[in-house]
């Protein structure tokens, strides 16, 4: 699996969401797309999924340009609280299962049990934490080549985070999948990452292996990110 963003730019009205982004990802790694809210991380994930289209540049998955159909190979967890409210937990899983050939029912039911979700529960009446968990179940249960998580921990308490991290590590198939996590919670995510990609105001300002940052620079990812952001601000002035 090769996933590439070539010279991607994207505008929303007057707001430049992404500026000339070049990036590539490969199987077997966990990447962190790091940056404050509104820095363009979500747009990047949607571009990879084929849910939005670039103004400039191309996104390719295994050499093929990304279209609406690409979602077949990409499991995307949105940061938004998005469900069909009329559905129960079971119906939600059923619907996603019907739409994706790579949906692994066995994984789904394991995940449901582990995250303590009942098939009969109404989505409408779930707590925020449980809605976050349900989103994760429908995303991780897919044997997709690419798994994208947009702020998977935001607004969830530490217990839920912990259970989510554990499920992630347990169910990702590192031989066939790549995991890309977009988040502004840099410290929390650091131990999970192979590579950190710093996004700031729609530009990629840095990319490093997490362990070599620590080994060679003696820096945590957050320290590194702050340094880059300051440099970027100074350069802009």
């Amino acid at each position: 699996m090769v996933l590439e963003l070539n010279n991607i730019s994207k505008k929303y009205g007057k707001n430049q969401a992404l500026k000339h982004v070049h990036l590539s990802f490969e199987t077997g790694k966990i990447y962190g797309l790091l940056g404050p809210n509104g820095s363009g991380k979500s747009t990047m994930l949607k571009l990879i999924t084929g849910l939005v289209f670039p103004d400039e540049g191309t996104v390719t998955l295994n050499g093929e340009q990304v279209t609406r159909k690409t979602i077949e190979k990409v499991a995307y967890l949105t940061e938004l609280d998005m469900f069909y409210d009329a559905f129960s937990v079971g119906e939600t899983v059923e619907y996603v299962a019907s739409q994706f050939a790579d949906f692994n029912r066995e994984k789904a039911s394991l995940l449901l049990t582990e995250l303590r979700l009942e098939a009969s529960q109404k989505v409408r009446s779930l707590s925020k934490g449980n809605r976050g968990r349900l989103k994760l179940v429908t995303t991780l249960a897919r044997d997709a080549e690419v798994i994208l998580l947009d702020e998977p921990f935001s607004g969830l308490d530490p217990m839920v985070r912990d259970s989510i991290v554990k499920s992630l590590l347990k169910y990702i198939d590192f031989e066939h999948q790549v995991l890309i996590i977009a988040t502004h919670e840099i410290n929390e995510i650091e131990p999970l990452l192979d590579e950190a990609i710093a996004i700031y105001h729609g530009t990629m300002i840095g990319r490093e292996s997490v362990e070599s940052l620590r080994e060679e620079e003696g820096q945590s990812v957050l320290q590194w990110f702050k340094q880059l952001a300051i440099k970027q601000e100074e350069g802009a002035q």
Binding site: Y84, A86, F87, E94, Y95, S98, Q99
Partner: peptide, 18 residues
């Protein structure tokens, strides 16, 4: 479940009350 049937079921479900 067939994906088309899945879609139908979803559309039926979300419009039932209406």
């Amino acid at each position: 479940m067939n994906p088309k049937f899945g879609l139908l079921k979803k559309d039926y479900r979300i419009s039932r009350n209406m």
